Computed example of a mutant assay.
Amino acid sequence: MKTRLVPALAALVLALAACSSGTGAAKDTGAGNADGSPEELRIGYQLIPNGDLIVKDQKWLEQALPDTKITWSKFDSGGDVNTAIIAGSVDIGLAGSSPVTRGLSAPLNIAYKVPWIFDVIGENEALVAKSAGSIADLKGKKIATPFSSTSHYSLLAALQDAGLKESDVKIIDLEPQDIQAAWTRGDIDAAYVWTPVLGELEKTGKTLISSKDLAAKGKVTADLAVVRTAFADKYPKALSVWLQQQDRAIKLVRSDKDAAAAAVGRQLNLDPAEAARQIGQLVLLDGKEQQSAAYLGTPAAPGDLAKNLHSAAEFLKSQQKIDAVPELSAFQQGLAVKELSDAFTG
């Protein structure tokens, strides 16, 4: 759920930009099968208790695309997914709205689109402290979060809302598992992170604010699917199948919560009760809901997700995290609304 533009990545971006209008289209997955399906579909997933883990656990894609090799690769953050998309090694991946905002902005300008919202983030991401009674009490303290993630974005928003500047605290860049280790050692005073690590921190810490609280203040975050534009253009039927399996997972959550929790629990190594609790912290949307004006929208009317990403870009620019704010149209064009519509019509 984050984006790092380290020197090596910056060099890669410049190299790819020289031969493409947008990064992320440098490599394809082969000539494809006779039926038009890809020889391989490479998926970048994260350990987040949403429908993607159900699709993986139930092997629905393997069943629906029998002639396609389905390769699942685990990533710790959306920034790493961005890097993999740029390198052309992932076709569809999960990244938070903050790294996607950065991906659709300069200098990255990644050639990908958003065809699906995995979840709207709620209580599954939060700021937890060891002893502070309020966010203001964190002044001068060490706070860990994965840089440029949705958690990082939310942490900056929470500090601003509490009247603190970024310089008033010491923010440390750590991946979730490293955050848990640093918390145990006593190296940090607080952390903004997501489940399942969040659940471990909450056992000994106090939640000061969640992403659900921040959403009520206008700082909405989400876990989004991104698909390489080249892949979506070449294999529209495969993308439709992928979208239909994601929709199937949401319907399973609603029709058989026990089965859904068991599937997510297996993927996260959690007991079903805890998996069910974590699933319940997210807002999950089926295919019809995704096409509403509040979310992705339709080809005729792109939804509010584009506005949310544009608003996030304005905030990131104010925090000097991106160089410039793209026009709203850039985010509207970054929504794969036609592909989403095609998957659920006809």
Rank of each mutant, 00 (worst) to 15 (best):
V220E: 01
P49I: 00
L155A: 02
Y235V: 05
V100R: 02
H152C: 04
A17G: 15
V90M: 15
L243S: 11
A190C: 14
G44A: 13
D223A: 14
S255V: 04
S211R: 01
P115S: 11
L9Q: 10
K59M: 10
K74M: 14
H310K: 09
Q63N: 11
A157H: 02
K212V: 02
L252Q: 11
I172T: 05
T145N: 10
A144M: 14
T298A: 09
F118P: 01
D247W: 00
D213C: 10
L214A: 02
K74L: 15
V253P: 00
N308P: 01
I279V: 05
P299F: 05
V325N: 08
E339L: 10
A275Y: 00
S20M: 13
S98Q: 02
T221L: 08
Q46K: 13
R254D: 12
L53S: 07
P99M: 05
A25D: 05
K237P: 00
I172G: 01
A336E: 01
Q320V: 12
T207N: 03
D247L: 04
D173G: 04
A301C: 09
G297P: 04
L214S: 04
A25W: 02
A10D: 12
Y112Q: 03
K113C: 01
E62L: 11
G140H: 09
P176N: 06
V90F: 06
G163Q: 12
A262I: 13
I188M: 12
N109W: 03
L53F: 03
A106Q: 12
K113H: 03
A300C: 04
L174W: 07
G297F: 01
G218K: 08
K321G: 01
K170E: 13
G44E: 03
L316E: 03
P107F: 13
G44F: 07
L328Y: 12
L16R: 12
I70F: 10
E40T: 15
A216K: 15
Q291M: 15
Q244Y: 07
P107L: 13
K307W: 07
D80I: 10
P299V: 11
V264T: 04
G96Y: 09
A261I: 00
A263G: 05
V337S: 02
L108R: 10
D187I: 01
T298K: 13
A216C: 08
A324N: 09
L252N: 07
A126D: 03
E175T: 08
F75D: 05
A126H: 06
L138R: 11
A222R: 07
L164D: 11
T229I: 11
V253L: 12
Q177I: 07
K69Q: 14
G88V: 13
T23N: 15
T101Q: 08
S151T: 14
I92W: 01
L61E: 01
P236K: 03
K237V: 09
L47D: 02
D137F: 09
A312I: 14
R248P: 06
D223N: 15
S240K: 08
A273F: 09
I279F: 00
E289M: 15
K217V: 09
K69E: 14
A293W: 11
P326T: 06
G36P: 06
L285S: 06
S73Y: 07
Q267D: 07
A111E: 04
W183Y: 11
K251M: 01
